[in-house]
Simulated assay, not measured.
Amino acid sequence: MPLIETLPVRPDTAQWPAWGTVARLVVTDPAVLDQAAGILRDELSAVEQACSRFRPASEIRDVCRSGGRPVIVSALLAELVGAALTAARETDGAVDPTVGGALCALGYDRDFAELAGRTVGSGVRVFPAPDWRAVRLRGRELTVPHGMLIDLGATAKAVAADRAAARITDRLGTGVLVALGGDIATAGSGPDGGWQVLVQDRPGDPSCTIRIPAGSALATSSTAGRTWGRPGELLHHIVDPATGRPAPTVWRTVSVAAFSCLQANTLSTAAIVRGHGAPRLLAGVPSRLVTPSMRILRTGGWPA
Rank of each mutant, 00 (worst) to 15 (best):
E5P: 02
T6P: 00
T6C: 05
T6N: 00
R10Y: 03
T13R: 11
A14T: 08
W19R: 15
W19T: 12
V22G: 08
A23R: 13
R24T: 15
L25C: 14
D29A: 13
P30S: 13
A31C: 05
L33Q: 06
D34L: 15
A37Y: 01
A37G: 03
A37L: 08
G38A: 03
L44M: 14
A46V: 04
A50L: 14
C51F: 01
S52C: 07
A57H: 10
A57R: 12
D62Y: 02
G67Y: 12
G68Y: 03
V73S: 11
A75W: 10
L76R: 03
L77I: 15
L77H: 11
V81K: 12
T86E: 03
T86P: 05
R89I: 05
E90H: 07
D92C: 08
D92I: 12
D96K: 13
D96I: 14
P97E: 01
P97I: 00
T98M: 11
V99C: 06
V99W: 07
V99I: 15
L103I: 06
C104I: 11
D109E: 03
F112Q: 10
V124Q: 06
V126W: 11
V126M: 10
R133T: 15
R136Y: 04
R138P: 01
R138Y: 01
E141I: 15
V144H: 04
P145Q: 00
H146R: 12
L149T: 11
D151K: 13
T155G: 08
D162T: 09
R171I: 13
L172E: 01
L172P: 01
L172N: 08
G181M: 04
G182I: 14
G182T: 15
D183Q: 13
I184N: 07
I184M: 13
A185S: 13
T186L: 11
G188C: 02
G188E: 00
D192Y: 06
G193D: 08
G194F: 07
Q196L: 14
Q196K: 14
V197F: 09
L198N: 04
D201T: 13
I210D: 04
A214C: 12
G215D: 04
S216R: 01
L218R: 06
A219R: 13
S222P: 02
T227A: 14
R230A: 10
P231E: 00
G232S: 06
G232C: 02
P241Q: 06
A242W: 02
P246R: 02
P248K: 12
W251M: 12
T253Q: 01
V256N: 01
A257C: 04
A257K: 07
S260N: 09
A264N: 08
A271Y: 06
R274C: 05
R274P: 08
H276I: 11
P279H: 02
R280A: 15
L281Q: 12
S287P: 01
S287H: 09
L289I: 13
V290A: 08
V290N: 09
R295I: 12
L297R: 11
